[in-house]
Amino acid sequence: MSALLEVRNLATEFGAKLGLRAVNDVSFRLERGKVLGLVGESGSGKSVTGFSIMGLLDRPGRVVDGQILFDGTDLATLSDAEMRRLRGKRIAMVFQDPMMTLNPVLTVGTQMIEAVRAHDPVSKDVARQRSRDALGLVGIPSPDERLSAYPHEFSGGMRQRVAIAIALLHHPDLIIADEPTTALDVTIQSQIISEFQKLAEQSNTAVIWITHDLAIVSRLADDIAVMYAGRLVETGSVEEVLGDPRHPYTRGLIMSVPSQNHRGEPLRQIPGMTPAINRLPPGCSFRTRCEQATDACAAMPDLMSEGSRAFRCFHPVARIDA
């Protein structure tokens, strides 16, 4: 079975002249109906990867290298008009902050109907019906009335449901979810996640779930890709990577989850901070924070495959010590 999305050696740069690489040599593949967890700290390039696929990078950001093969076509070579026809129709996106994603001066109905009609030449009434059904699907009570309400009349969780309903309007093949639960309460988080899971399964939609929360990934994702300073450092199935991490950074992330710690002990953390992308050390970007770094790490390690998984480290971790 060929992959729905195959990203090959993606590189994205910001900065007018200097060319700051926010995403460097990122490759992964995603099959229909699968969920990929794209994990990393703030500034690791995970959101930029998502926006690169959507073709929605803020200027002067641009894809400078690599291919984004979506169902066989390279998105990086498509014109703006072709890309627009794809966005919202076959690839949809849900954003991080539901308080900001809906236009405050337009009703929810207007914003849904226009999304339907952007891709399907249907009448307003039909579009309204489809919008109402979509709202019902994501669990919004009395959807008919809610269509004429403004975003500020919804709570954060409800707004995120609206955003998800909009993303699902055209039954896309791929949804990129950029930390869609980060700004929400824990209880709402769970509801949104299970809602997502259910809907993705029903319509065989592939999902890239961008997050820094390993707990969500372990619940939701089939595969995981860990990013650090713009590069992938470890990829593989969730069981393999979270159960038995190879890269010291992945292990550090797992150990930092509070439930992995014992009561009374100080919380474990990865020492130091993510380096700024314009001040990366030569060689392995993580070596300044890594306990196992040696002189060999002054050269950039390649992604080394081990069965279906891969990691970028000369000194892979053997087993997690529980």
Binding site: R87, G88, M93, N103, E114
Partner: peptide
Amino acid sequence: QDYIKFARAKGLPERRIIFVH
């Protein structure tokens, strides 16, 4: 603003984004 980016993510024509949103 995010809502303009989201409008783009919906695949709206640029005309509608500028003259409505």
